[in-house]
Amino acid sequence: MNQNFRRNLFGSFLSFVLVIVVWQLIVSLGHVAPYVAPQPLDAWRSLTTHWSTLWPLVLGTIGETVVGFVVGATLGLGLGVVLAKRRFIQRVVYPILILTQAIPIIALAPPLVLVFGFNLAPKVIIVAWIVFFPVTVNVLDGLSHVDRDLLTLARSYGASPWRTFSAIELPASATNIFSGLKIGATYAVTGAIIGELAASSGSSLAIYQHAQSAQLNAAGVYATTILMTLIGIGWFGLIVLVEFFTTPWNRRQIARRAGQHI
């Protein structure tokens, strides 16, 4: 791949090392008891020894995150477009959107369990609930700020509303749309874990962590937190990759390729 991308990857690796080093320093120099906070290596060991138990739980959380994200992002995109195109609907619906986000997300779980029971549905709904909002707001923002002259140009060609949308408005909003998706991606795991805490009957990553905490097994607690974080980072990274490949014009080194000719 290209140079810039490799540099970013190297930066991420460096920040990862930094976090581990700081963690180790705090535990060693602060004489923190092992049942309060484990050393990084202990957390790693707990992770590897219990991998066979953790692996299916991780898959479960990934499943909830991905399904919830896809539902939320699709909803958010659709809603953002409708609100941008119909100002009246925007005036009516926007306050409701704010309302949905003002509800403490933890308080949302019990009523959902009452309706759907202990299964996938409440978790997916909670994830989608969190994800759709930043997507909607960013799509709306992007579509509202498309260069009006560019739209006039499209009109001068006699372009249909649909063509104008797909050829001008959507690509012009790409940066905003991806901002919304990236914010959504980081929140999605949080939603899935809250859902698991409130709506899991059997095993799940959140319940597992809860059990480790009850047993004062700090290594197990930290190991679970790391796994949850990694799922979030992985999902975020995937969105960044999709953005990288679908918006080549935003890559600086491509945009500047002709610099030498000018």
Binding site: D149, S156, P171, A172, W249
Partner: peptide, 14 residues
């Protein structure tokens, strides 16, 4: 009619 303005209005994504 073909139509062109002072702003070039090129699509940055194309």
């Amino acid at each position: 009619a073909g139509y062109m303005l002072q702003k070039d209005l090129l699509a940055p994504w194309r």
